[in-house]
């Protein structure tokens, strides 16, 4: 526990001094705001540009808050995957390669404390960014469109946070087991790519971590099918726990592969 705290402090200093705690939330907030504003003024912008044919209804003016948030979450899928994975794919593997791990691994550290400190540090940054980004998006959507139920917004943020936690855990475990390049590719395939596949051919099943994004949006229009939703949550939590175990195992196994 003490080792976890000490190592997390190091992670925190890393994310603060290397500005991850600043630029990642800023980017998420930007993308969160951009979506509702763009939709709202799309028609104006089109008219201003002047290539809007007479009498064509873009359907944009009929959009509801839920529609806008759905498209925000759709945008977030790619941003979360790209930024979280690219920012954190090296947090464990790079330390092996740049020799800094040697000075940690010669001490009697517990590998679970080491892995969990890395996971906690990345999770703090990723969740903070996600929550701020979605809150900003909600705020703008409510100003420009109609009010939304606060609890539904909270449900969306909660559900989507679990998805982000899943992405972070996949990334860190991949980094614990593989080299940086392989880890990044694998994490992208297991999160964004699988989520795309799921959205294309996923109508045959209702329970999977890759459906969390869809369920998050569903909270705004109607409650998601209760048993399907909760089963997906349980499956995701189990997957995260399994990934944590694999990550700790990978960290221990890779002691042999650190550069000295």
């Amino acid at each position: 526990m003490m080792q976890w705290r000490v190592l997390l402090q190091k992670e925190w200093r890393d994310h603060v001094r290397n500005l991850k705690i600043l630029w990642i939330p800023i980017v998420f907030v930007l993308y969160g705001i951009m979506q509702p504003v763009m939709f709202y003024y799309m028609e104006d912008i089109m008219k201003a540009v002047g290539n809007m044919p007479e009498g064509v209804d873009m359907g944009i003016t009929d959009m509801t808050s839920a529609d806008v948030m759905a498209s925000t979450v759709g945008q977030f899928h790619l941003i979360v995957a790209l930024i979280v994975i690219l920012s954190f794919m090296g947090v464990i593997s790079k330390e092996r390669k740049n020799r800094t791990a040697a000075l940690l691994y010669v001490r009697p550290i517990s590998f679970s404390a080491y892995y969990l400190s890395k996971l906690s540090g990345a999770t703090i940054v990723a969740l903070l960014s996600t929550v701020l980004g979605l809150l900003a998006s909600f705020y703008y959507t409510m100003i420009l469109y109609d009010e939304m139920d606060v609890w539904k917004c909270a449900a969306l943020i909660g559900t989507y946070s679990l998805w982000v936690l899943f992405v972070v855990t996949v990334t860190l475990t991949a980094s614990a087991v593989f080299s940086t390049g392989v880890a990044g590719t694998l994490a992208f395939l297991l999160t964004y790519f699988m989520q795309l596949i799921d959205s294309i051919i996923g109508q045959f099943w209702t329970v999977s971590p890759w459906k969390l994004g869809t369920y998050a949006i569903t909270w705004l229009v109607a409650e998601p099918d209760s048993s399907d939703f909760w089963l997906s949550v349980v499956v995701t939590v189990i997957a995260i726990l399994l990934l944590v175990i694999i990550g700790i195992w990978g960290t221990r196994k890779n002691v042999e592969n650190i550069k000295i």
Binding site: V29, L30, V37, Y41, Y140
Partner: peptide, 20 residues
């Protein structure tokens, strides 16, 4: 009003650029 709504985006984007 479009400008008013876009202003925060421009400001935040500017902050990001300055930080970088």
């Amino acid at each position: 009003s479009l400008l008013m709504m876009l202003l925060p985006i421009i400001i935040i984007q500017f902050i990001l650029m300055i930080v970088a």
